[in-house]
Design a protein around this nucleic acid. Structure first.
Length: 334
DNA sequence: TCGATTTGACCGAT
DNA sequence: ATCGGTCAAATCGA
């Protein structure tokens, strides 16, 4: 896995900008890039999408640099910042799967027989410890809310359904179809939200290592399945990594952007009806390998087509109130 | 016939 | 003891 290489040297003329303005620039740029991403993805242009995702990541990285008080492009970012960046890399581009074990000596021919053989091996090692069951031990999760839209490019097989305490609707459990034939460990849970929104929360655990997927390893799912501009603007996804506890954090209602120790959530918004309507019936995956594998462009000036909602948000939210809240943005600013 | 789903049982964590 | 996650036999359906 290549590291996220951002060329972050800033133009000399920007050196006089305050950190505040630079952060603002970067956020506006990132917002515009996200808008561009939604457009190219709606057109099925995954090549362009990959490049845009790389640029968006670089924009966030630059913001972190600025907020940390170090020069973008610095060779030696502070350790605290590094930990955040490592976290980003984990969330957006989970580490390569461990080396594939040698193919098991399975003599059975059918997929079901292979499945059975793997399960028998697992059962054989179940000496109270080696074969885990029960609480999930995984450390990475990606959640999104949206219509019950399962066509995310992967083949899933339902393996359970459970009524959850204090929840109106039951939770369904899915694993990758290729769990046994290709040792793919990706799973997901789908649960209808308790409100009347008709939305479902889908939480993904693990990464696809199978080769039958349209795109491998969904670093995140871009949910643009809404059918109206209003719904599209409510469409959101959340990337969660959790290396300290097994609980997921629910921060769905934070506006636009929030960053805490263990969480990055981006709310996508669309500003025109035509863009929104072009996003119908689409679920997209972005490969993490391409997300982090390519160097990004140096920071440039403001993009030509800035949509003003983020700009307005900054003006009206009184910057300090928004960003000084350590619950949302735990950095020391300026 | 065979892959997918359903559903009660089982298991580990708390 | 309770809860959430997974297993696996029974069942479904193409």
């Amino acid at each position: 896995m290549e590291s996220l290489e951002c060329s972050t040297a800033r133009p000399a003329e920007s050196a006089s900008l305050t950190n505040r303005l630079r952060v603002k620039e970067e956020l506006v740029l990132g917002h515009e890039l996200a808008n561009q991403l939604s457009r190219v993805v709606s057109n099925g242009d995954f090549r362009s999408a990959e490049g845009l995702v790389t640029k968006i990541l670089c924009s966030f990285k630059n913001i972190l640099y600025i907020l940390q008080g170090s020069n973008p492009g610095s060779e030696d970012p502070p350790e605290e910042l590094l930990s955040h960046m490592r976290a980003d890399a984990i969330a957006l581009a989970p580490p390569l799967p461990p080396p594939r074990p040698p193919p098991p000596q399975i003599l059975e021919s059918s997929a079901w027989d292979a499945h059975t053989a793997v399960k028998r091996r697992a059962a054989f090692t179940d000496h109270r410890g080696s074969f885990k069951r029960g609480k999930r031990m995984t450390s990475q999760a990606w959640s999104r809310d949206g219509p019950d839209f399962n066509d995310d490019g992967h083949a899933w097989r339902k393996y359970g359904e459970k009524q959850i305490q204090n929840a109106i609707h039951s939770r369904s459990y899915f694993r990758c179809t290729h769990k046994y034939d290709q040792d793919c460990k990706a799973i997901k849970q789908v649960q209808k939200l308790d409100d009347d929104s008709q939305l479902f929360r889908t939480t993904y655990y693990g990464n696809h290592t199978c080769t039958n997927s349209i795109l491998q390893a969904p670093a995140f799912v871009f949910d643009s399945t809404s059918t109206t501009p209003k719904e599209a603007s409510d469409s959101k996804f959340m990337l969660i990594y959790d290396d300290t506890s097994n609980s997921l954090t629910n921060n769905q209602e934070q506006p636009l952007f929030s960053s805490t120790e263990n969480e990055l959530m981006i709310k996508s918004s669309y500003t025109t009806g035509s863009q929104s309507s072009s996003l119908l019936s689409s679920g997209y995956l972005v490969s993490p390998d391409t997300v982090v594998g390519e160097p990004c462009e140096p920071i440039s000036g403001m993009p030509p087509q800035i949509e003003l909602d983020l700009e307005d948000m900054f003006l009206e939210a009184e910057m300090g109130h928004l960003l000084y809240d350590e619950e949302i943005f735990p950095y020391e600013l300026w």
